[in-house]
């Protein structure tokens, strides 16, 4: 019965409201996904309420107290400029969310569109788009960053653009393969035989079948994006000091792994929790979107 309904809606046009409700129900039933969502809301709250939560000014230096061990006043200790590490981790949430979410959304949307369109239409469009992807893939992260700085100059927006540019071709290649395989399947051929338009087929049949894995991966890519921020910072693409960022803190903290272990572990843990939250939600979304698991 359920399957009949799904098929009917796919052919006769989705009843959006009921679909959305059903999606939300599926998602809600997934307890881990809901836990992830709660975590994300908490993380966003931390980012917004940073000034209220942070025990100290994240940029206030006191050099004489550099690398001081954890205490009640500085639960994670002080960094190499004598700044409160906990406050910097809390404020760092802001940049982490911007870089992690925006760059993956940007790269993901553009990349997926390219991959799906290329795979579905084939022929000259495919050849052209996939060559473009190959060109973009041929630039290592660092060179892409250099390119963006050289053309646009430094800044947070450009950093997000550079990371998005790094991620997009990867999404494209990942979306491309499954599209090739999905488009040959019976239900797509059937839809085409019934004269359903290309745009509709892409939206209703191809995308949901491809998107599941991409969302899961996208949730992981937020971590890579946050880490990439640190490695791009030394070619002038990073977030300028003294703004705290997790990537930069982990990078600097590694030097003091034995003297002040929490310098790197603090932001590392924050990064882990954030990625975990995104991944839990990503897995949940995947289940909602996957037309096969609706049955």
């Amino acid at each position: 019965m359920a399957q009949a309904a799904a098929t009917a809606s796919a052919l006769a046009g989705p009843r959006l409201i009921s679909q959305r409700q059903r999606a939300w129900r599926t998602f809600r039933q997934n307890r881990t996904a809901v836990a992830g969502l709660v975590l994300i809301i908490l993380i966003v709250a931390v980012a917004l309420a940073a000034p209220l939560l942070a025990p100290a000014d994240p940029t206030a230096q006191s050099i004489r107290m550099r690398l001081q061990a954890p205490s009640w006043a500085n639960p994670l200790g002080r960094d190499d400029y004598g700044r409160d590490i906990l406050s910097r981790v809390i404020y760092g949430t802001r940049v982490a969310l911007q870089v992690g979410i925006l760059s993956v959304l940007l790269g993901g949307a553009v990349g997926t569109a390219i991959g799906v369109i290329a795979g579905y239409f084939g022929g000259r469009i495919e050849a052209m788009l996939m060559r473009l992807v190959d060109i973009l893939l041929s630039f290592p992260d660092l060179i892409t960053g250099l390119l963006v700085v050289a053309v646009l100059g430094p800044g947070l927006g450009k950093l997000i653009l550079a990371i998005g540019l790094t991620i997009a071709p990867r999404f494209a290649r990942l979306a491309h393969g499954p599209t090739l395989s999905v488009k040959k399947r019976d239900f797509v051929e059937a839809a085409r035989a019934l004269g359903v338009g290309n745009g509709r087929i892409l939206r209703v049949h191809i995308l949901p079948n491809v998107l599941g894995e991409l969302i899961v991966l996208g949730s992981l890519w937020t971590a890579s994006a946050i880490r990439l921020e640190a490695s791009l910072s030394f070619i002038g693409l990073g977030v300028p000091p003294p703004t705290p960022t997790w990537g930069q803190m982990i990078r600097d903290g590694t030097i003091y792994l034995t003297d002040a272990p929490l310098y790197a572990i603090g932001p590392g843990l924050a990064l882990l929790i954030t990625v975990l939250a995104f991944n839990l939600v990503g897995d949940g979304l995947r289940d909602v979107l996957d037309p096969r698991s609706r049955a």
Binding site: A223, A230, R251, T254, A264, L272, V275, L276
Partner: peptide, 14 residues
């Protein structure tokens, strides 16, 4: 999940 995400959250140099 957690085991595999720990590997991801730690930068390669760390």
């Amino acid at each position: 999940r957690i085991v595999s995400l720990v590997g991801l959250s730690l930068p390669a140099f760390y």
